[in-house]
Write a protein that binds this DNA or RNA. Structure first.
Length: 426
DNA sequence: CTTCCACAGGAAAAGCCGGGGT
DNA sequence: ACCCCGGCTTTTCCTGTGGAAG
C-alpha cells in the first residue's frame, strides 16, 4: 500500500459512482444469451433447419455479416432451439458442435478439433492435434460421425475464413452424405449439416467452386444494425448500466445515430455510450448529456486516427512524418512533387527503401481515406495543369502520437533532430 | 470551341514473400 | 534443401481530366 505521506495530492478510489450502476453491462459480451432486434433474422435462420424436424437431411448454411451483429450468439440460440424442438419428436435426435476456428488455420486442425469435440461428448480420450497423416484425420472424423448415436449432427464452424484456402474439410463435410463421396457417411446412420459463419464478405468468393456449390446454397446475411435497432439495444442495456435518470433523453438516440453512421455494430454503440458515461463520471457530472456524447465521439475518432497511423506500413509512416514536417515548415498544402522530394530525403535518412512517386500517390490516397490528409483539386489550365494539393487532415500531435512506437522512424527522426539542434548551437 | 498543361489514377507487368509440396 | 505457386505490393506505361488561354 502507498505510504500515507505520499498521498497528499492524490485522490482516492471509491466504489461509489453517481453515474454508473454496473458498467460491465456495456461490454459487448455481457449477457450473451440474449439478442435484440434480430427476431426476424433468427427465425429465418431457424427455418433453415426445418428439414431436420421432419427427419430429412439438413441443409448446409452459410452465415455472413460483420462482427458484432449477432452471428455467433444467434447461431448458438438457433442450435439450442433446434435441439429443444426436436427433443419431443420420436426417432429424431440432434447433436450440435460449435467450433471456434479462430486459431485453427488449416483444414487439418479443424478436422482434428472436430474429432476431439465429438470424442469428448462421449467421454473418450482425445487425439493429438498434430502428428497424424492428413488422410487418417479425415478417416477418424468420418468414423466419429458415423458412430454418433443421434440421427442428425449439425456442425457449426465459426470464423471459418481463418482456414483460408485450405478448404478441404469444408468440401468433405459438406458432401459426406452423398453416396459417391470418398468419405461416405450413410444418412441412415447420421445426417450431417454444416454451418459456416464468417465476417469476411469476400471469403465466399475465395472458396473453391465445388465448396461454394455445397456450402453456399443457403445463406443468411446479418446486416449491420440501423440507428433504431441500436437505440433499442442501448436502451435495454442502459437501464442496468446506469443509475436511474442519469442519461438525459437525447443521449441514447444520439449514440445510436453516431454508431449507426460509423459502423452499425452493437459494440461501437456500447463503446460510445460507455465513453460518454466515463466522461461524465470523471467530471463529477450529475447526468450524461448530449454534450458528453459528442465529446466521446470526438475522443473515439481521435483515438481512431492514432491507431490508423500506428497501423500504417513503414512507407505510410514515413509519408505521414514527411507531411508533419512540411506542415511545421508552413509548406502545406503542397503538391506531390514537393512532398516526394521531402519524402526522398526522409527515407534516405531512415535508410529504408525509396519507392516511386506513383506509390507515394497511392499512399496519399490511403491516407486520405483514413483522414490523415485532405486534398484539394487545383486547376491552372494551360499554365500549370490539373493536380491536387495535399494538407494535413488531422491534428499534428495525434499523428505524431500514432507514429510513436515505431522505433526505426522515431529513432532516426530523433537522431536527425539532435544533429540539427547541435548544428544550430554551433 | 479547341488546345494544352501536368498530374491523377487505371492496367498490366515485374518483383517479392510466405507456405506447401517434393 | 529446394522449388513452385498464389497473393500481395511496387513499378512501368499510358490514357484521362477539366479549366484557362487563345
Amino acid at each position: 500500500m502507498i505510504a500515507p505521506n505520499m498521498t497528499e495530492g492524490l485522490g482516492h478510489l471509491t466504489p461509489e459512482d453517481d453515474i454508473f450502476c454496473d458498467e460491465d453491462v456495456l461490454r459487448d459480451d455481457y449477457d450473451p444469451d440474449r439478442i435484440l432486434e434480430r427476431d426476424e433474422k433468427l427465425n429465418e435462420y431457424l427455418n433453415m433447419f426445418r428439414e431436420v424436424v421432419r427427419g430429412k437431411r439438413p441443409r448446409n448454411i452459410f452465415v455472413y455479416g460483420p462482427t458484432g451483429v449477432g452471428k455467433t450468439v444467434g447461431t448458438r440460440l438457433v442450435l439450442d432451439r433446434l435441439q429443444e424442438d426436436v427433443s419431443d419428436i420420436q426417432n429424431i435426435s440432434v447433436t450440435t458442435v460449435h467450433l471456434e476456428c479462430k486459431d485453427l488455420n488449416t483444414s487439418y486442425q479443424v478436422a482434428a478439433n472436430l474429432v476431439n469435440k465429438l470424442r469428448n461428448r462421449t467421454g473418450r480420450q482425445s487425439i493429438s492435434t498434430t502428428g497424424h497423416p492428413e488422410g487418417s484425420i479425415y478417416d477418424m472424423l468420418f468414423e466419429e460421425l458415423r458412430n454418433i448415436p443421434q440421427t442428425h449432427v449439425i456442425i457449426a464452424l465459426d470464423e471459418i475464413d481463418n482456414i483460408g484456402t485450405s478448404d478441404n474439410v469444408l468440401y468433405k463435410l459438406g458432401r459426406c452424405n452423398n453416396r459417391n463421396s470418398a468419405e461416405y457417411v450413410d444418412p441412415d446412420e447420421t445426417k450431417v449439416g454444416l454451418v459456416g459463419v464468417t465476417n469476411d464478405g469476400t471469403f465466399r468468393d475465395r472458396l473453391d467452386s465445388r465448396v461454394q456449390s455445397t456450402l453456399c446454397d443457403h445463406e443468411i446475411h446479418f446486416p449491420p444494425y440501423d440507428a433504431t435497432e441500436l437505440r433499442t439495444i442501448l436502451a435495454d442495456r442502459a437501464v442496468d448500466a446506469f443509475h436511474d435518470d442519469v442519461c438525459t433523453e437525447d443521449v441514447i438516440p444520439l449514440v445510436g445515430a453516431f454508431a449507426a453512421q460509423r459502423s452499425g455494430y452493437a459494440r461501437t454503440a456500447l463503446d460510445l455510450l460507455y465513453t460518454a458515461g466515463n466522461l461524465a463520471t470523471n467530471e463529477d457530472a450529475e447526468q450524461v448529456t448530449e454534450e458528453h456524447v459528442r465529446r466521446a465521439e470526438d475522443k473515439i475518432q481521435q483515438g481512431a486516427i492514432v491507431t490508423e497511423v500506428n497501423q500504417l506500413s513503414t512507407q505510410g509512416k514515413i509519408v505521414t512524418l514527411t507531411l508533419v514536417r512540411l506542415h511545421e515548415e508552413g509548406e502545406l498544402p503542397s503538391k506531390l512533387d514537393k512532398i516526394y522530394a521531402w519524402y526522398e530525403t526522409n527515407a534516405n535518412k531512415i535508410d529504408t527503401d525509396v519507392v516511386t512517386p506513383r506509390t507515394i500517390n497511392n499512399i496519399l490516397n490511403d491516407l486520405m481515406l483514413n483522414g490523415v490528409v485532405t486534398t484539394k483539386e487545383v486547376n491552372h489550365g494551360v499554365k500549370g495543369g490539373r493536380f491536387y494539393k495535399y494538407d494535413l487532415g488531422a491534428n499534428r500531435d495525434l499523428l505524431l502520437e500514432g507514429l510513436e512506437g515505431n522505433s526505426r522512424i522515431a529513432e532516426a527522426d530523433h537522431r536527425d533532430r539532435l544533429k540539427t539542434n547541435r548544428s544550430c548551437v554551433d
